[in-house]
Design a binder for these strands. Structure first.
Lengths: 103, 103
DNA sequence: TTGACCTATCGAGGTTTTTCGATACAATGG
DNA sequence: CCATTGTATCGAAAAACCTCGATAGGTCAA
């Protein structure tokens, strides 16, 4: 039940690519090919698909996804050699509430 | 009618002090003494009051306020030797909408 | 076991942010 | 005009961030 850290979240969102990744993950089927492994796209999208679309190096994208994860904006699921990332809608709702009430 | 720049906004919010300034300005009368000049607090709060509460150097706070202003999160009003800063609620509403819809 | 593949981590460069003190600019009061 | 006060800008040092290539670790197929 770890509490939301607004600074970490805002830092994660302070980058064009990370913002785009997050919005791509809103409708994965619209932006990524279906992956053979994970049940459709419910698990999320694997790093290589995200990397390809982002057009940055593999290490950078992996790092970005870690930042998004530490901010609680995405969740990761390891399946075999793949790591699937998907949005964490709860944090995004909390963020909207935070902006409406605290900021 | 300059359009909101989410990156600029998120960068401005990625700092504890700037976040606190913004929240202080939500209820100025609760956090700042009334200033002799500006009509009550409708104009906003002057830099020195904000600086005192923030506990950082004058130049840093002035810089922070400029960052918040460039992000459209606050507005400035010059009156004599004072500059009063107040929140720009419109941008904050737009930000909440952006998070709900785009992110 | 070996090789291929996916992802994470390391190390490093260049850039940006943070924060300060010093200084410049503007307005006010003698 | 001068001194004072409030604010903005400049220049600089330290820290953090961005991004890469290289490499390490885990997994699968042959």
């Amino acid at each position: 039940m770890d509490r939301m850290d607004p600074i970490l979240i805002f830092k994660a969102l302070s980058n064009e690519t990370r913002l785009r990744i997050l919005s791509w993950l809103k409708e994965p089927e619209k932006h990524f090919p279906v992956h053979e492994g994970g049940d459709g796209l419910s698990l999320g999208v694997c790093v290589s698909h995200i990397q390809e679309k982002a057009g940055l190096s593999q290490s950078t994208v992996s790092h970005y996804l870690l930042l998004l994860q530490r901010a609680g904006l995405v969740e990761a699921a390891r399946r075999g050699q793949w790591t699937y990332y998907r949005r964490n809608e709860r944090t995004l709702r909390e963020l909207a509430a935070f902006i409406g009430e605290q900021v």
